[in-house]
Nucleic acid binder design. Structure first.
Lengths: 160, 160
DNA sequence: GTTAAACCTTCCAATAATTGGAAGGTCAAG
DNA sequence: CTTGACCTTCCAATTATTGGAAGGTTTAAC
């Protein structure tokens, strides 16, 4: 199986498979005489594992740990659970952060008539000299450009 | 006011103020004889606007538009409302994506005893050859590294 | 037997927003 | 005049992913 087939079989782009190899997430693939990478069933299994873990929102760093645990037959389930739990906590924090932003924004939108006239409570609030309560810079630099970039790539988890 | 004071007054790091200038989000600051950037009240007002818009989750690209609208006395509130509404929609989508991930993960965690023994439903599910229902790679590469470093964010998942 | 398509390879760049650091100039107080 | 706290520019790293260029390989068709 060459990289294109592995890509199709795992759902991970060839680019990313090479990248995962480069950063040491997966071992170096064996090569054909002419240098083509070559994958077998077990490799695909690993790639599928990675893909699902990514879909579950784990970072590459976390997946690295999960892979080690996965390959260690004697690992205590406790360690995996801890990793997953701390990840879940982060997820929940992020969710509530986004929710509070969404609520604020939703309120502002609700107060804006949104017609042809120029007065707009949204801009007013953003530019209000004393509006700092509204947008509590949650102590930390925020980050969360919702971009959803080209909306294209994105992945998923289908929860039944 | 030099850049350090502007930074303190606006809550935006000096680094970012320079960056915003470099990418054209804000106009080039006037300079002192020796090259120091120099800011006045109106500049601070703009920086505060930007900081609040960031806190509201708007991307730089969106903020660029908001600034133009803000500075246009005759803009129709409709345009602002549209921008905000589409942003809110993205926020809500992201939130529900994260929620579905969190739910799946939470279930897995709930089934894991997390003791010293090695059997772990979390890893089992991630590595299950037929687990694709749980973590459906809905055709697109995923993205969503939870780091949450200092409250970062970025993630996605599409649940359908 | 050559050619063209469809692969593969590596390397370099860009994305988004932010931070870090190095190397060096400036300003105020001591 | 020195020290420390500023400021300047430039370059790099972060995270995960994509894009493209330049070039080699394989396969199938002609």
């Amino acid at each position: 199986m060459n990289i294109g087939q592995a890509s199709r079989a795992s759902g991970i782009s060839a680019k990313m498979i090479r990248y995962y190899e480069a950063i040491g997430l997966i071992p170096k693939a064996t090569r054909s005489y002419s240098g083509y990478r070559h994958y077998d069933e077990r490799d695909i299994h690993v790639l599928l594992f990675i893909n699902r873990a990514r879909a579950a929102g784990f970072s590459i760093a976390h997946i690295k740990k999960l892979l080690l645990l996965w390959q260690d037959r004697r690992r205590p389930a406790r360690e995996v659970k801890q990793l997953a739990t701390s990840h879940l906590k982060e997820l929940r924090e992020k969710i509530s952060e986004l929710q509070s932003i969404a609520e604020t924004l939703s309120q502002l939108i609700g107060h804006c008539r949104g017609d042809d006239r120029p007065d707009c409570p949204i801009l007013d609030t953003l530019s209000d000299k004393d509006a700092t309560q509204e947008f509590a810079e949650t102590s930390k630099p925020n980050r969360l450009h919702s971009s959803v970039r080209q909306s294209s790539s994105k992945q998923c988890v289908k929860t039944k």
